[in-house]
Write a protein that binds this DNA or RNA. Structure first.
Length: 211
DNA sequence: ATTAAGATGGCCT
DNA sequence: GGCCATCTTAATT
C-alpha cells in the first residue's frame, strides 16, 4: 500500500483525517528493524479547541504542531510518556491527530523487546512486568495506548519530534483495513473540551485502549 | 465493576 | 503554583 503523501495530509480537515487514518498502517524502519501497526484509535485536536496544545500560541513545546501537514509532533505527557500526533493543517494553523492505539502487524518481537527494556530500565515503572509477544494477550498489550505505542515503535521526542511522515523513516501507509464500523466518542484524559466528540475508533477491535 | 491513588517533571501562567 | 492528550496496582462497591 502506498505511503501517504503531503497532498493527502493537506487535502482533508483535521477531524476527517482522524477518521481516514483509522485502518492505515504506521511504520517505523530503523537500525533495530521494522515495526508497524494498524491505527485503530485516534483523536482530533483543533486550533479553537481548549484541549489543544496549540490553542493559545506557539511555544517551543508545541512548535511542531505549526509545521507542514504530515509532520510528526511528539510531546511528553505527565513529562514521562511520549505521545505522537500527525500534524494536519497547513503551516501555521496548529491542528493535529493523536494516535492512541495500534494493532501490531510487523516486528512484534522487537516491540516486545522495547517494552521489556523499558520495564528493565525503569522508564516503565513496574520493573517486574514483562510482555510475552508470542501470546495473544501480550500482543494486545504491546501498543494499546498512546504511551505504550511510542515505546513499542521506538519513537521518542528527542529524536522524532518534527520528523516528516512523508520522507520517513516513520511514515503511514494507506488503508489496509476497509470494512469496519467506526465509533465516535469524547476524548480521554482531559477536562477542557471533554464534551467534544473528537475521538474515533474501530468498533470491536481489541487493541483499542478503552471502550 | 468502578474508583482511587501514585510515579513522573516539564511547560505555561 | 497549577495543570496535565498515561499507566498500573490496590481498594472499594
Amino acid at each position: 500500500m502506498a505511503t501517504l503523501d503531503h497532498t493527502f495530509y493537506q487535502q482533508h480537515d483535521t477531524l476527517t483525517l482522524a477518521q481516514l487514518l483509522l485502518g492505515c498502517e504506521l511504520v517505523h524502519e530503523n537500525a533495530e528493524g521494522t515495526t508497524a501497526g494498524i491505527i485503530v484509535e485516534t483523536e482530533g485536536y483543533l486550533t479553537d479547541d481548549p484541549a489543544c496544545h496549540a490553542y493559545r500560541r506557539q511555544t517551543t513545546r508545541n512548535a511542531a504542531m505549526f509545521g507542514l501537514a504530515g509532520t510528526l509532533y511528539v510531546y511528553q505527557i505527565y513529562n514521562h510518556y511520549n505521545c505522537i500526533n500527525v500534524v494536519t493543517r497547513p503551516e501555521g494553523v496548529g491542528e493535529a491527530v493523536l494516535i492512541r492505539a495500534l494493532e501490531p502487524t510487523e516486528g512484534l518481537e522487537l516491540m516486545g523487546l522495547r517494552r521489556n527494556e523499558a520495564f528493565k530500565t525503569g522508564f516503565e515503572r513496574y520493573r517486574n512486568n514483562t510482555i510475552d509477544a508470542t501470546t495473544a494477550d501480550g500482543q494486545r498489550n504491546l501498543a494499546n495506548g498512546p504511551g505504550k505505542l511510542t515505546i513499542a515503535m521506538g519513537i521518542n521526542r528527542a529524536h522524532d519530534n518534527f520528523s516528516s511522515l512523508i520522507t520517513g523513516p516513520i511514515y503511514i501507509r494507506g488503508p489496509v483495513l476497509h470494512d469496519f464500523d467506526m465509533v465516535t466518542t469524547t476524548r480521554i484524559g482531559l477536562t477542557l473540551g471533554a464534551d467534544l466528540p473528537y475521538r474515533y475508533y474501530i468498533n470491536g477491535n481489541r487493541f483499542v485502549s478503552k471502550k
